[in-house]
Structure formats: structure tokens, C-alpha cells
Simulated scan of single mutants.
Amino acid sequence: MSALEAVRRRQSWSKVTPEAPTREQLLPLIAAAGRVADHSSLRPWRLIELRGEDRERLGSAIAEATGDSSPSSKPLRASLLIAVVASYRRSDKVPRWEQEAVASGVAHVLSLLLDEAGWGVIWRTGGYTRTAAVARTHGLGPDEELLGWLYVGGKPGKEPGRRSPVDAEAVLSRMPAERADDDDGPAQDPGRPDACGKKAKKKAKKRAKKAARKAEKRAEKRKKAEKAERRLRQAEKRS
């Protein structure tokens, strides 16, 4: 199967069966996922596998973070949870947001590889993801943040609902055309002539009217200057 076919077939599985890949099965997939683009090769990420009682401890941490009296059952929805951690490195060239993007890329690629290997995967988060209680349970350091968990299990017989296809034409555009210094409106995309629609036409009309008013004012000034010059000449002749 090509990479294009694998990506087209990938989908999130909100419900999975109790089966899960072993640690030995995970290792080569993680090694491959780590090949994502990584500025300066900082590897600002790490993964934590949660199995068995680990999931119950996470449920207790979620309850602490949300103020609930009983542990959350959400971590029990899959036999294997893979926590995705952004582990920031000191760098003058690579900002934190770029390092977090690398960690996110690893998670996405890993979910794709797991799906291709026959496992059902969904990336889950929540308002409690970056709380102190949850961070403490995962053993996170001061320069680490949790990006969520990959819930991994067997694919049930029933396929999940399909996502609507992406309209590539709607999201791929060209660089905006260069604008003049006195142009207050947005430049129109040469690759999408109708991108701005009615709003663009209204703005164009406003700019045209503004330019016309400026031209009229300049013309009036020239007329006044010419009239004043004629009066001055007449006065000089009389004198």
C-alpha cells in the first residue's frame, strides 16, 4: 500500500476492541514516526505507554483535575493509551511552538502507521490534559507538556462514519499580489479570481471613489492656483 492510499484510508476509531499491539510491535512504528521533519534534530518529544492499572491511575488524576468524586472511566476505553509529550529543548533557533509541532507530527504519523498495521486509533484530549494532577501522574518535567493520548485497540467489525472529503481547491491558493502603498484593501489572489466575491467588488468601488475624489481635489487646487496667478498678472499690468 502506498503512503497516499494509507492516508486516504485512515480514520479515527472512537470505539476499539480489547486487543492492542505489544511493546515489541510498537517500537519499529515509533522509530519510523520519529522521522518527521525536526528542525536541528532536537527530538523534542517522548511517548508514554499506559496499560492495565496505569489507565486507572490516569482516571483518578482526571477526577482530581476536574473535581469529580469518582475516577474517570475514559482511560478504560482502550487497552493501550500512548501519551504524547512535548519535551522542549533549549534552542536559540527553534521556538517552543515549532518543537510542539514536531511532537504533534510524531503523533499523527504514529497514528497513521498503527492504522495501516490494522489497529484502531483515535487521538483524545480534554480540558484536563495540561493540569498539574495529570502532569504529575505522567511524571512530566518542568519543560514538558502533554498533547493528549492515542487510544489504541482492535478495529471492530463496524466501520466508523466517514469524514467529508477535503476540497483541495478551497484550501490551496497562491501568494497574494503585491499591493501599492496607497492601497488599503486586500490584494486579490491571482490563483482564485473570485476568492473575495462581493466584498472585493465593494472594496474596489470604494477605492475607485476615493481615487476619484482625490483627483477632483487636485484639479480644484490647480484651478485655484491658475486663477490666483492670472489675478496677479493682471494686477502687475495695471501697476
Rank of each mutant, 00 (worst) to 15 (best):
D184E: 10
G120Q: 09
E64W: 01
A65M: 03
L232F: 08
L232H: 10
W97F: 09
V102I: 15
A117Q: 03
Y128D: 00
S239E: 08
R89N: 13
A37G: 14
E19Y: 06
A180G: 15
E145D: 15
L27T: 12
P21K: 14
L42H: 08
S40E: 06
A107F: 08
L42S: 09
V36Y: 09
V121Q: 08
R231G: 13
L232Y: 08
L47D: 14
W13G: 01
V134R: 10
A37C: 11
T17K: 08
G197P: 02
A204T: 06
E229F: 01
W149R: 00
A3F: 12
K205E: 09
V121C: 12
R162I: 06
V94S: 03
S104A: 15
V134A: 13
L140Y: 12
L81T: 06
P160K: 13
T125R: 08
R218T: 06
V16G: 05
P95Q: 04
E144Q: 09
R207F: 10
S91L: 08
V109R: 13
V121T: 15
K223H: 04
A83V: 05
L80N: 05
A31W: 13
D54K: 04
Q25V: 10
S14G: 03
I62C: 02
G126K: 03
R90I: 04
P176D: 03
Y151M: 13
R163S: 14
R162P: 00
A61Y: 01
A235E: 13
A168C: 07
V16A: 07
R89Y: 14
R77F: 12
Q234I: 00
Q11T: 05
A212I: 02
V85R: 02
H108I: 05
A200T: 03
R10S: 05
S79I: 11
V166A: 08
W13M: 03
G105M: 00
P142V: 11
D181I: 04
E216R: 11
S73P: 05
T129A: 05
K199Y: 11
L113E: 01
K15S: 12
G157A: 15
T137H: 08
E49Y: 04
E100P: 02
H39P: 05
R230W: 04
W123P: 03
A170N: 09
E178L: 14
E64T: 01
L4E: 06
Y128C: 00
K201Q: 14
A78E: 03
T22L: 07
W149S: 00
A133T: 01
E49V: 08
D54W: 05
K214G: 11
A101N: 08
K203M: 15
E53Y: 07
W45R: 02
L26W: 05
V121F: 09
G59E: 00
